[in-house]
Design a protein around this nucleic acid. Sequence first.
DNA 1: AATTGTGAACCTCTTCACAGCT
DNA 2: AGCTGTGAAGAGGTTCACAATT
Lengths: 208, 208
Amino acid sequence: MEQNKRIPESTISRLNVYLRELIALAEMKIKRISSAELGERTNLSDAQIRKDLNYFGSFGKSGVGYDVKELISSLKRILGRNETWNIAVIGAGSLGSALMKYPGFKKQSLNLCAAFDIDPKKINKEINKIPIYGLDKLARVIRDKKISICVIAVPQTKGREIADKVVKTGIKCILNFTPVSLNVPEDVVVRNVDLSGELEILTYFLVR
Amino acid sequence: MEQNKRIPESTISRLNVYLRELIALAEMKIKRISSAELGERTNLSDAQIRKDLNYFGSFGKSGVGYDVKELISSLKRILGRNETWNIAVIGAGSLGSALMKYPGFKKQSLNLCAAFDIDPKKINKEINKIPIYGLDKLARVIRDKKISICVIAVPQTKGREIADKVVKTGIKCILNFTPVSLNVPEDVVVRNVDLSGELEILTYFLVR
DNA sequence: AATTGTGAACCTCTTCACAGCT
DNA sequence: AGCTGTGAAGAGGTTCACAATT
């Protein structure tokens, strides 16, 4: 294996895709799978799958393939999916409250359990049973509720300011829904989702 | 310029970032900008910006920089942002209805104007003034309303089936919110947004 | 016989660095 | 003097192809 090499972030997102597919296979009582079959199901190449897994070790058997249950448990370990992580959303506007209702954000290992806003009309209310706190309570709630991921869903203009506040609390993982690029220290991981950007890009292809 | 070369999709999303920033600069009455300054504001390198623009032509003046208004109008033309494109959302569940309320999806050149669902309780209702149609009306509404982009926000299990239906209507641009990879003909452009995937990936960094 | 693990080749995108333009 | 446009170098990720393994 090549654990010492730098692992591409795209490998990590694919590992997540593999895990999802393997769980579906396990539910269908399928016990073994080859990289070629898994590739077929995920629209990825067999070599890609083997390379990705190989960053973390050898999980398959030559001539046989991968044991579905074993690979699920390895991937869960690699991806940190054996524990439950608490998540907070900053901004309870249209996007923030949608995320609070989104079932994809309530999973075994993901627990969206707090929201923050500056609007007094929203503070101390709940959305989908998730309490909304004033932004001034950020540091305290993050500490008390042991939150490890913050989702930033505030208006574009407040993005950087909020990111600074979040970083100051010691949070190391941010999912940023504002279209601005955040400046964070090296040890903080940011993933960006630019929803209107994704739509806007499509218009490029429409004029071609 | 190098228009003949294949243009990376990442270049297109950056052009969109430049456009956004330039519009902000124009609002601040700034007339000229260099690639270095624009790079500072967008967290990108000056060389990257010049390379990206160079795929489409020469827009700057040596020793001077770029004229903000001129570059805005060039980028709008390149990105197809001079016309208004009609958009439909398929799936009016928690995610779909959030997108209907999301202000980022109502812009000068983007007009989200129809939604589809199979639930009779939702059909013929409206969300944020956007009418919800039965899925059986898909082809007709897409034709009548001149829709050119479809946003797929249905449950994972229905993703591929819906994508096939959408492709059959002649749509060439899809924004896919399901976590499954869609199989579409070569001339159809798909962009994928895997919301829970983005969160799930972050847990990887938490155990490191 | 089938399928993995993996070095090497390949391809794509980014950064460098500087000639040339204003 | 300053900044662009761009060929060349570099970095990073993917695919190829095959020896090794069960």
